[in-house]
Design a protein around this nucleic acid. Structure first.
Length: 597
RNA sequence: GGGGGCGUAGUUCAGUUGGUUAGAACGCCGGCCUGUCACGUCGGAGGUCGCGAGUUCAAGUCUCGUCGCUCCCGCCA
C-alpha cells in the first residue's frame, strides 16, 4: 500500500467532514461508468461510500477507474464533498456526501464471482457454502456475525462482572457412555486407543467446583455425532457455566439477569423478569411437550375420562386401555379453515404417530358438525364442553393414542394451527423456565432407566428415598430455559455427594466397576470435599438465531457444515494418507474404503 | 435408516401433449455516454438440461438408478 493509511471506514463520513482529504480502502460494490464520469460504490463491513472520478481532477485516476470491476479491492485518496442538489441518497448513511478521487490504486483484482455480492437475490445453498467467504461479504450474513460477536461480548462482560472465571477445558478427552454418539480421535502415542471430543465440559466444570473455583464459565465448542437438523450442527457452541454454594433459584435469578442484559444490549429489548415458571408435568399436560411456545393459547385439554363409555370406539378403546384422548380448541377457526384443510390436518399429524385426527366444527347455531358427532353421547359431550368450552365458530381437534403419542401429535398440531391462524406474534420474546423434570425415563427397548438430563443431576432432596422403590417418580433439580417454543438452555443442581452419585449410577444400571472405570475420577473428586454446586448451559447458536431472526443455524455460524456433515469449502471430511493411518495403527475396512466420494 | 422438496447459461428462473435451432432477466465482454446510485444505450459471447442407464423414430420433458443441497421422522437435550 506504499505507506497509504486508511483514515475512515466506509460508513463513517458525514456532511460535517466536508473538504477533508481522506484515504479510503475497500471492495468495489458497484461501478457506474458514464464515460467521462465514473462512480464507484466502495464497501467495507461498516458501510458504503460513493466515490466520483472526474477526468479534470485526476486524469490518471479517472483512466484507472475504467478498468475497475466489481469486487476489486482498491485504495484511494480524495476530498469529501457535499453531493450536488437533489442527488443525495437517503438509503445510505453516507448519502449526503461523496468523495472526489484524486488518486486511485488497485490493491487486488477479482475474478467474476460465482454469484453477485451486491445483490440480495437468493442463491443456492451449496454454492454459497462452497464460496462461504464470498457469502460472508454480503450484508445479511455479515450482520449475523456482528450480532453474534455482540452477544458473546455482552455475555462475557456480564459474567466477568459477576465473578465468573473463563477457564478452558480439554477438547481431547475420554469417551463416556450415555448421551449422544461421540466423535473419536485416534491416539498415536497410545496405539489402539481413542480420545473423544466433548459433548459438553460437564465433568470438568464440576471438578473445577471441587477445586474451589467457585464460579466458572466458558464459551465453548461441543461435539455430537448425530444427524443434523435446521437448528443442529455436529459442532456447536455452548455458553457453559457452573457455580458453587447455590440452589436452583440462585442460578435462575442470575441467568435471568444475564439474558435480560443480553437482549437489552443486542436488541434493545427490555424483558420482564422474573420469567414465568412451569413444571414439566404441567407443560406436558397443557402443551404436550417440555418446551412450550407460550406466545399463544390453544392449550391441550384431557377428555379421556368422559370417553371410556363413548360409542366412538376409537376413543372408548384408548380411554379404557390406559391411553389418552386430548383435544385442542381452535377458537374461531371455523371461518378460516376449509373442509379440505381440516381433513388435511390428519396428514399433518400422521408423521408424529397419530393414526387419526377427529374434529368437531361448532356451527353458528351451536350444532356440532363432525364425522364423529353421532357417536358422542351426553357424557362424552359434557366432558368435551367442560374441557374445551366450545363456542360457535370454533373447531375442536382430538387425538386418541398412548399419552406420549397424543401429546407429541397435539403439540405439533398446536404450533401448526397457531401459525396458520395467525396467532404467533414474531415480535414477542416469550421466555419460561420448565422445572421439576423427572430424573429418569424408562427405556422399553433396553429395559432400563436413562437419565433425562444427565447422570450427575441431583434428585430433589425429598425424593431421595424413592430412588430405590420407584425411580420414575423421582423429580430432578433440573431446569430448562425455553424461548418461543425452543429450548435455549438447560441445567441442574449436581450431585455433590459421591455416595448419592453411586446410588444413581446403580439405579441407571451402571455397574460399580463400570462406574469406577468411566467416572471414577469424578466420584473420587466428589469424595474429597465437594461444595454443593450447579450450573447451566445455553445453546449460543440458537440464541443467535433468535437475535438475528433466522431459521437456519448455518446462518449464525461462519463456516457451517451441510446436512451430511461435510464442509463444501474445505471438502472435509477427507481421505488421509495410508502413512497417517499406519502411524495410528488403523486399517480401514473394505466398506469404509469404498465409501465417501 | 425412512419420507418430502429442489437440481436447465456464471446466477435466479421459464420451458406447452415427448417434436425441428433450449429462452428471459441479472451478471460477464466490447462500443458510446459528465450526476449516476438496480445508471442508460448499442452490440457480443456464454448450455455435459447434476450424473448413468432405459423406453421411443425422437427425451430438458417419461421410467429406473445414482449424486448433491435442503426440510422432516428416527437419532440427538
Amino acid at each position: 500500500m506504499e505507506g497509504w493509511k486508511r483514515t475512515h471506514h466506509l460508513g463513517e463520513l458525514r456532511i460535517e467532514d466536508n473538504e477533508k482529504t481522506v484515504t479510503l480502502m475497500g471492495w468495489v460494490h458497484r461501478r457506474r461508468d458514464h464515460g467521462g464520469l465514473v462512480f464507484l460504490d466502495l464497501r467495507d463491513r461498516e458501510g458504503i461510500t460513493q466515490v466520483v472520478f472526474y477526468p479534470d481532477l485526476s486524469n490518471e485516476a479517472h483512466e484507472l477507474a475504467h478498468q475497475v470491476r466489481s469486487e476489486f479491492v482498491v485504495a484511494l485518496k480524495g476530498i469529501v464533498t457535499p453531493r450536488p442538489e437533489e442527488t443525495a441518497n437517503k438509503d445510505l448513511a453516507t448519502g449526503e456526501i461523496e468523495v472526489r478521487a484524486t488518486d486511485l490504486k488497485i490493491l487486488s483484482r477479482a475474478k467474476t464471482t460465482p454469484f453477485q455480492i451486491a445483490d440480495e437475490s437468493e442463491v443456492g445453498e451449496d454454492l454459497r457454502l462452497r464460496y462461504r467467504y464470498l457469502d460472508l461479504r454480503r450484508p445479511e450474513l455479515q450482520d449475523n456475525l456482528r450480532v453474534r460477536h455482540a452477544a458473546t461480548s455482552s455475555i462475557r462482560r456480564f459474567l466477568d462482572g459477576e465473578g465468573f472465571w473463563d477457564i478452558e477445558t480439554p477438547v481431547l478427552t475420554r469417551s463416556t457412555p450415555e448421551g449422544a454418539r461421540d466423535f473419536l480421535v485416534p491416539s498415536r502415542l497410545s496405539s489402539g486407543e481413542f480420545y473423544a471430543l466433548p459433548q459438553s465440559p460437564q465433568l470438568f466444570k464440576q471438578l473445577l467446583m471441587v477445586s474451589g473455583i467457585d464460579r466458572y464459565y466458558q464459551i465453548v465448542k461441543c461435539f455430537r455425532d448425530e444427524d443434523l437438523r435446521a437448528d443442529r450442527q455436529p459442532e456447536f457452541t455452548q455458553v457453559d457455566l457452573e457455580m458453587s454454594f447455590v440452589e436452583q433459584d440462585d442460578i435462575i435469578e442470575i441467568m435471568e439477569r444475564m439474558v435480560s442484559t443480553l437482549f437489552a444490549e443486542v436488541k434493545g429489548s427490555s424483558l420482564v423478569t422474573p420469567f414465568p415458571r412451569i413444571t414439566y408435568a404441567d407443560a406436558m399436560a397443557r402443551y404436550g411437550c417440555d418446551a412450550p411456545d407460550t406466545r399463544f393459547g390453544l392449550e391441550l385439554a384431557d377428555v379421556t375420562e368422559g370417553m371410556a363409555g363413548s360409542d366412538f370406539k376409537v376413543f372408548a378403546k384408548v380411554a379404557s386401555s390406559g391411553g389418552a384422548v386430548k383435544g385442542i380448541n381452535a377458537k374461531t377457526a371455523g371461518e378460516k379453515l376449509s373442509r379440505k384443510e381440516i381433513d388435511d390436518l390428519a396428514g399433518f399429524v400422521a408423521p408424529f404417530g397419530a393414526k387419526g385426527l377427529a374434529w368437531i366444527r361448532i356451527q353458528p347455531d351451536g350444532e356440532w358438525q363432525s364425522p364423529i358427532a353421532k357417536f358422542l353421547g351426553d357424557e362424552a359431550r359434557k366432558a368435551i364442553v367442560e374441557a374445551l368450552a366450545p363456542a360457535p365458530g370454533d373447531i375442536l381437534f382430538f387425538v386418541a393414542d398412548t399419552l406420549s403419542v397424543t401429546n407429541f401429535a397435539l403439540s405439533k398440531l398446536r404450533v401448526h394451527l397457531a401459525k396458520r391462524l395467525g396467532l404467533v406474534d414474531d415480535s414477542v420474546w416469550s421466555f419460561c423456565w420448565v422445572t421439576d423434570f423427572p430424573l429418569v425415563e424408562w427405556d422399553e427397548e433396553e429395559k432400563r432407566y436413562f437419565a433425562l438430563h444427565h447422570p450427575f443431576t441431583s434428585p430433589r432432596a425429598e425424593d431421595l428415598n424413592l430412588l430405590k422403590e420407584d425411580p420414575s417418580r423421582v423429580l430432578a433439580t433440573a431446569y430448562d430455559l425455553v424461548l418461543n417454543g425452543t429450548e435455549v438452555g438447560g441445567g441442574s443442581i449436581r450431585i455433590h455427594d459421591s455416595e448419592v452419585q453411586q446410588k444413581v449410577f446403580e439405579m441407571l444400571g451402571i455397574e460399580e466397576e463400570e462406574a469406577m472405570e468411566k467416572f471414577g475420577f469424578l466420584l473420587e473428586g466428589l469424595s474429597f470435599g465437594a461444595p454443593p454446586h450447579g450450573g447451566i448451559a445455553f445453546g449460543l447458536d440458537r440464541l443467535c438465531m433468535f437475535l438475528t431472526g433466522t431459521s437456519a443455524i448455518r446462518d449464525v455460524i461462519a463456516f457451517p457444515k451441510t446436512q451430511r456433515g461435510t464442509c463444501l469449502m474445505t471438502d472435509a471430511p477427507s481421505k488421509v494418507d495410508e502413512k497417517q493411518l499406519r502411524e495410528l495403527g488403523i486399517r480401514l475396512r473394505q466398506s469404509a474404503k469404498q465409501g465417501g466420494n
